[in-house]
Design a protein around this nucleic acid. Structure first.
Lengths: 135, 135
DNA sequence: ATCGAAAGATTACAAGTGTAATCTTTTCAG
DNA sequence: CTGAAAAGATTACACTTGTAATCTTTCGAT
C-alpha cells in the first residue's frame, strides 16, 4: 500500500522528476544542469518547477546552508502507474488488452525484447506460481 | 499516410470524440445524451467542446436545417497513436519495451487475452511472414 | 565592511482546459 | 402571427501549465 494521493505531473514536471529520480537528491542548479539539453529552460524556470513540485507533493527538500537539496517524495513507479491508468481510462475505457495490443503494434521491438515480453506474459498466467497476483 | 497534424485532445475532448467515433455523425443534443452518465455536463458545455473540437480540427460538421451534424475529422487510430507516443516519450524516454512491460504488470488480463497477446508478439517477430512490418 | 552573485519567494502573463452563462437568430407549436 | 424553445456564437472565469522576470535575503570574495 504505497500509492494514492500521488499528484499528477505535467509533462514538464515529469522531466524534472525523472532527473531527480535518476540522480538522487540535487540542488536546483544541478537539476538545471542535468536536464536533457533539448530542454533548455532558464534556471528560473527550473526553480519554478521545483517549487511547484514541492507544493504539489512530488518533491520535498532539505535545507543545506542557503540552498535546498530536493528529493523525490513519491515513487517513480507510483507516478507511472497513475499516468498509465489515466491513459487506460481516457483512451481505452479501461480495457487493457486493446491498449497493450496497440502498443505492441506501434512499437518496434527486437527479438530479445519480444522474448522478454513473452516471458512476462507467461508469468502472468494464473497458476504461474509467481508470488500469486499482486496488485 | 494519414497521420500528422492530428490535434492533441484534452481528456474531456477525448470523451466527446470517443462518443462520435462510436456512434458516427451526431447532433450536439445527441452527443450530450450519449455521453457516459458519470460525465454529466450541461448541454452548453458539450457545445463548447464541439466548437473547440471543430476549431482544432478534430471534428467537422455538416449543416442540417438549423443545426449541425458533427463528425470526426481524424481517425481514432491516429489520435490514439499520438497519445501513446506522448506517454512513451514523457515517461519512458521512448523505450517501448519497459512501457509494455509496465502495462502487462499493471493490468489484469485473463488467459485468453494473454494468449492473444502472445500471438501478436509472435507475429511481430522479424521473419514472421505477416505482410512485412507495417508502420 | 561592502558589493555583487546566487538562493529562494513572489509576481507575471499568455495559452489551454473545464464548465458554463448570455446573446442572437431561427424555428415550431398554437 | 407570436412567443418560447433550441441552435450556434460569443463571452466568462478560475485553474493549470510553460516560461520566465523581479524582489529580497544571504553568502562569499575583497
Amino acid at each position: 500500500m504505497s500509492a494514492e494521493d500521488i499528484p499528477s505531473l505535467s509533462p514538464a514536471e515529469w522531466e524534472v522528476m525523472k532527473t531527480i529520480w535518476d540522480h538522487g537528491p540535487m540542488a536546483a542548479r544541478d537539476v538545471h544542469a542535468s536536464l536533457p539539453s533539448d530542454r533548455d529552460w532558464s534556471i528560473k524556470t527550473v526553480k519554478t518547477m521545483l517549487s511547484r513540485l514541492v507544493a504539489k507533493g512530488g518533491l520535498h527538500y532539505q535545507q543545506i546552508g542557503n540552498s535546498y537539496l530536493y528529493d523525490s517524495a513519491i515513487a517513480r513507479d507510483d507516478a507511472t502507474r497513475l499516468e498509465v491508468q489515466g491513459l487506460l481510462a481516457r483512451l481505452f475505457d479501461n480495457m487493457a488488452m486493446p491498449m497493450i495490443a496497440q502498443f505492441i503494434d506501434q512499437s518496434d521491438l527486437n527479438d530479445n525484447e519480444i522474448q522478454e515480453l513473452q516471458q512476462k506474459l507467461c508469468e502472468k498466467r494464473p497458476g504461474s506460481r509467481g508470488r500469486g497476483r499482486k496488485r
